[in-house]
Design a protein around this nucleic acid. Structure first.
Lengths: 348, 348
DNA sequence: CCGCGCAACATTAACGTTAACGTCCTACTG
DNA sequence: CAGTAGGACGTTAACGTTAATGTTGCGCGG
């Protein structure tokens, strides 16, 4: 790891007896440069392994060619795929990705926003913790294009791309009803997040349309304490315990709609221990279509979230906003999730 | 998203009738500044919402206070946790994280290295694709401290932190033998990666020590075509198909050691379809301890990889190298994985 | 043969910050 | 009371790049 100082434009200019500006223009392909000179500059740059200093470049250009991405938890498969999609798409347009992990903590979120601000990111894509709007308000107020994904912060008036969770909840529930369920329980995370509220709203709508009652106890909350285990995705363990509590009831539901596939997994175990068969004794529907879900026994019916689409649109929105083209898209954009029907709702 | 220009030190200096330098020192907490002046500066900075421009700062300081992280695939749970750990630890030391996704492609890797170089990262943590060393050689040659994780590139002589995969393979295999297995098959990914080779070497050592033969066909390869589905983790589907091929053999193994838990999952299905019970008819051991593995039926015995430890050490190595403290650690560091014994190897 | 225009380069300034060095004034020492 | 130390601030330069503006010299038309 030898500390060979990096070569600069000045170095090249000096060895070739040219001015710094000439070298700059030669390398950046601008005209007003003789072909022979350009070739000489290129050769020398190649020889010494010249790498432009993008900090100096950003400083003078006012743009860092970097997008900031604030994610609550990369171990959530949905967010992992978002990271992949966003990074790849951003890079294909010449932008780098500055990643911040907020761990569902407002304090981390503040630091993350501060960090993105300092770095003068050209734009940022944010999954807000949704416990406060302060952190991200400043980003917009200093003119950093910001797109919220997955969870909205309506107060800010930012662009938003997310899943139509209401529709997801509705489709999952309707599907269960179609397959014969009359009494349905929802197993949701214990976080004050709009995505969850919307899913529950969709559940209620489906039940109402079918004329089915939603008695007390239909919505069960799984305590997830994300703060303490930030690096881990939702633990099936907590859902398992809540499910066991549910199984002590005298009247059991015909179906359970779980807030994510890990919850469904915990439920699977509780049911197995209790001697109940999926789907004959109880149907199970998950959310997220995690990579393992298709291979459970029985394969899990689940709502597939449009991660790729959300990531792609988010980047495109930033690009359009930066380029100044008027954006012919709605301010808030909800992508419909699709229900993947599998064995856990397929009664024989 | 009003384009309010960002305030600079000069703005503050102007309104307070001070010099830029005074303002700078007041805010950065250096001495040689009157307490009253410092308070006035702080107040004004607060009032206008001053945010230091880290590009200008990096330019003059020569350090961007940024680490680069090159990951092949964030959807791999192991890498997802690495990202989490590394980001959090880096941030706690004041460093931001520039993330690049290489998608197991040498071409992407070249671009990633180039990008990190341009950004003058203070250090970088790299999971190499291992199809070539060229991309990362330059990083070191211009003095960027670089730590390889998970996969080594011995030619480069860089620091390396990874899992002791040989030991992992050995422990998994020994465990199966202890539990009575005599004929064992290994299901591994079809990539030319040292981690896989080491796991297989550990397998062979355990077999040899137990005096067991390793006939042809003991190592089965799962084609994974990562390039085509970069955003997805390993698909159980491919392992399932390979497993079915295996089940057509006349003599079946007593145990299968899978290269990762997704493979084990595919195997579970193949076995179930074939009417074979885990673990009584065949034991299964996975690699990675993915979050779902403890909740499979039966729960999967698997080798837990030390993601947190690797991420932490990698960041610490960079910090030490940057601070110039002599590092009292071996150049190559292998962390021992731990075997998590669960139901899939627990015969009744 | 004069002057104009243009190609090919050089010079200068600027981006926002930090570091090294200057300058002033006050207060203390002998 | 002269000398000086040091606190409080200002000035200057630098980081590496790009953009705006100068400066040559040469060819060409009138």
């Amino acid at each position: 790891m030898a500390g060979a100082r990096r070569h600069t434009l000045r170095d090249i200019a000096a060895t070739l007896n040219l001015s710094v500006n000439t070298v700059s223009r030669a390398l950046s392909g601008k005209d007003g440069i003789g072909e022979e000179t350009r070739a000489r500059v290129r050769a020398e740059a190649e020889r010494v392994g010249y790498v432009p200093n993008s900090m100096a470049r950003s400083l003078v250009l006012g743009s860092a060619m970097t997008f900031g991405l604030a994610i609550t938890n990369p171990s959530n498969p949905f967010y992992a795929q978002l990271i992949s999609t966003i990074e790849t798409r951003a890079r294909s347009h010449g932008y780098s990705l500055l990643l911040t992990v907020t761990e569902e903590s407002e304090e981390h979120e503040m630091r993350a926003a501060e960090s993105l601000l300092r770095s003068s990111v050209s734009g940022s894509i944010v999954v807000p913790v949704q416990s406060g709007t302060e952190a991200w308000r400043r980003l917009g107020s200093v003119g950093v294009p910001t797109v919220l994904i997955n969870r909205d912060l309506p107060d800010l008036g930012y662009r938003f791309v997310g899943t139509d969770n209401e529709l997801g909840g509705y489709r999952a529930t309707s599907h269960a009803i179609e397959r014969g369920a009359r009494s349905i329980v929802v197993l949701e995370e214990d976080l004050p997040i709009t995505t969850i509220d919307h899913r529950i709203a969709g559940f209620r709508r489906a039940m109402a349309e079918a004329g089915l009652p939603v008695p007390r106890g239909s919505i069960m909350r799984v305590p997830t304490r994300r703060h303490e285990q930030a690096a881990l995705p939702w633990q099936p363990q907590q859902a398992y315990q809540v499910a066991r509590r549910m199984l002590r009831r005298t009247r059991l539901p015909d179906a359970v709609v779980a807030g994510n596939d890990y919850f469904a997994l915990g439920l699977y175990r509780a049911l197995e221990e209790h001697g109940l068969k999926v789907p004959d004794d109880m149907m199970v529907i998950g959310f997220g279509d995690h990579p393992f879900s298709a291979f459970l026994s029985p394969p899990l019916t689940t709502v597939r979230l449009p991660a790729e689409e959300i990531g792609t649109i988010a980047v495109d929105l930033l690009l359009e906003e930066i380029s100044g083209t008027p954006i012919a898209r709605p301010l808030k954009q909800l992508i419909a999730p699709t229900l993947v029907e599998r064995g856990s709702t397929q009664r024989s």
